Measured scan of single mutants.
Amino acid sequence: QGEKVEGLQAQALYPWRAKKDNHLNFNKNDVITVLEQQDMWWFGEVQGQKGWFPKSYVKLISG
């Protein structure tokens, strides 16, 4: 089970394309609201879409 977080935002360092239905698509420089953190994967929201993404593709910009 991941840790729920509030008020964290991350900026995409690279584009990410979903490999599964529960993954989040985003483009480089998109700002993602992080909702949950697990070891290597984070759950977040961007442009009304929610899903999992690899944390190595983003950098935290707040929180």
Rank of each mutant, 00 (worst) to 15 (best):
G2N: 08
F53Q: 00
L35R: 08
V34Y: 01
N25I: 04
G2L: 04
M40N: 15
G51C: 01
G63T: 14
Q47F: 15
A12R: 00
F26L: 11
L13G: 01
L60H: 04
D39E: 11
F26R: 00
I32D: 02
M40H: 05
K59S: 10
G51V: 00
Y14A: 11
N25R: 08
Q47R: 09
K20I: 11
E3L: 06
K28C: 08
F43K: 07
P15H: 12
D21R: 09
S62N: 09
F43I: 02
T33C: 08
K19A: 13
Q11G: 03
G48V: 02
Y14C: 03
V58G: 00
Y57V: 11
K28Y: 06
K20C: 08
Q47V: 10
I32F: 03
A10C: 08
N29K: 05
T33M: 12
G48C: 04
P15L: 04
Q37S: 05
F26Y: 01
K50F: 07
G44R: 00
L8Y: 15
W16F: 11
Q38T: 05
E3M: 05
N25E: 11
G7D: 11
T33D: 15
G48Y: 11
Q37P: 05
F43M: 10
E45V: 13
W16E: 00
G2V: 11
H23L: 10
K59V: 07
N22H: 05
V5Q: 13
I32T: 00
N29S: 09
A18L: 06
V58E: 02
R17V: 15
A18C: 08
D39Q: 05
Q37H: 06
W41M: 11
Q38H: 03
L60S: 08
Q37M: 15
K59R: 12
G2M: 15
K19Q: 15
W16T: 02
D30P: 01
S56Q: 10
I32V: 12
N25L: 05
K4A: 08
Q9F: 08
H23R: 06
N22S: 14
Q11H: 09
Q9P: 08
E45T: 15
G48M: 07
M40A: 11
K55C: 08
I32L: 07
V58N: 02
A12M: 00
N25F: 03
V46N: 05
S62V: 06
L24Q: 02
I61W: 06
G7V: 15
Q11Y: 11
Y14K: 10
K28T: 15
G7A: 15
S56C: 07
K19V: 14
N22P: 14
V31Y: 12
D39C: 06
Y14H: 10
A12T: 01
K55T: 03
V46Y: 05
W41D: 06
L60T: 08
R17W: 06
D21M: 03
Q49S: 07
Q9N: 14
R17L: 13
Q9Y: 12
I32M: 03
G2W: 09
Y57E: 06
Q37N: 06
V46D: 04
K28S: 06
W52G: 00
N27E: 15
E36K: 14
Y14S: 07
Q49G: 13
K50Y: 03
W52K: 04
Q1R: 05
N22Y: 09
H23Q: 09
G44D: 00
S56E: 08
L8C: 06
T33V: 10
W16Q: 04
W52N: 02
N27R: 13
S62I: 08
Q37R: 12
K28V: 06
G44C: 01
A12P: 00
D21H: 14
L24F: 03
M40P: 14
Y14G: 09
V58P: 04
L13V: 15
M40W: 03
F26V: 04
W42P: 02
K4C: 15
G51I: 04
F53K: 00
A18V: 07
F53P: 02
W16H: 12
V46W: 11
G48Q: 04
L60C: 14
Q38R: 14
E3Q: 14
Q11F: 13
A18K: 12
S56P: 05
L24H: 01
W41P: 00
N22D: 13
V46F: 10
E45A: 06
L13R: 09
K50N: 14
V46H: 14
D39S: 09
G51N: 01
I32E: 00
D30T: 09
L60M: 12
K19T: 14
E6V: 10
E6H: 03
Q37G: 11
V31P: 05
T33A: 11
S56F: 06
I61V: 15
V34W: 03
Q49Y: 05
K4D: 02
W41I: 01
E6N: 11
Q49P: 02
E45S: 12
Y57M: 14
V5I: 09
V46C: 14
F43H: 15
V34A: 00
G48E: 14
W41A: 03
I61Q: 11
E6S: 08
P15K: 09
I61A: 11
F43V: 00
A18Y: 04
L24S: 00
H23W: 12
S56A: 09
E6W: 09
G63P: 13
K4F: 07
D21N: 06
W42T: 03
K55N: 12
Q49C: 14
V46Q: 06
V31K: 13
W52A: 01
L35T: 05
Q38K: 08
L13W: 05
K20T: 11
L13F: 15
K55L: 06
A10L: 06
Q49D: 03
V5M: 11
N22M: 04
V31I: 14
E36D: 01
I32P: 04
I61L: 13
T33N: 07
A10E: 01
F43T: 01
L13K: 05
E6L: 10
V31L: 13
E45I: 07
Q47W: 09
Q49N: 04
Q47G: 13
L24N: 02
Q38V: 05
N25A: 12
R17H: 10
P15E: 15
R17M: 11
M40D: 14
P54Q: 02
E36L: 11
L60D: 07
Q38D: 15
K50P: 06
N29P: 01
N22K: 14
Q9I: 08
G44S: 00
N27L: 04
L60E: 13
D21L: 13
W41L: 06
P15N: 15
Y57K: 15
R17T: 10
E3K: 11
A18M: 11
Q9G: 05
N29W: 04
N27W: 02
S56I: 03
G2K: 15
E45F: 12
H23I: 02
W42K: 00
G63I: 09
K59A: 08
F43D: 00
W52V: 00
G48L: 06
R17E: 12
G2S: 13
P15D: 09
T33K: 10
D30N: 04
G63K: 04
K20A: 13
L8V: 15
T33F: 06
Q38A: 03
F53R: 00
K4Q: 04
E3V: 05
F43Q: 07
Q11P: 00
G63C: 14
Q47I: 14
H23S: 05
W16K: 03
I32H: 02
I32K: 00
Y57N: 15
K20G: 12
A10K: 09
V46A: 14
W42Y: 14
L8I: 09
W42D: 03
D39N: 07
D39F: 05
T33I: 07
G51F: 03
L8H: 04
V31D: 03
W16R: 10
G63Q: 06
N22C: 14
L8R: 11
V31N: 07
G2T: 12
S62E: 04
D21P: 13
E36H: 07
F26G: 00
E3H: 11
D39I: 05
Y14W: 12
W41K: 03
L60N: 06
Q38W: 05
L8G: 12
G63D: 15
L35E: 06
E3P: 05
Q1Y: 03
W42M: 08
V46S: 13
M40L: 14
W42L: 11
V58W: 00
H23E: 02
E6C: 08
K19C: 12
V58L: 01
E6G: 12
V5P: 11
D30L: 01
D21S: 11
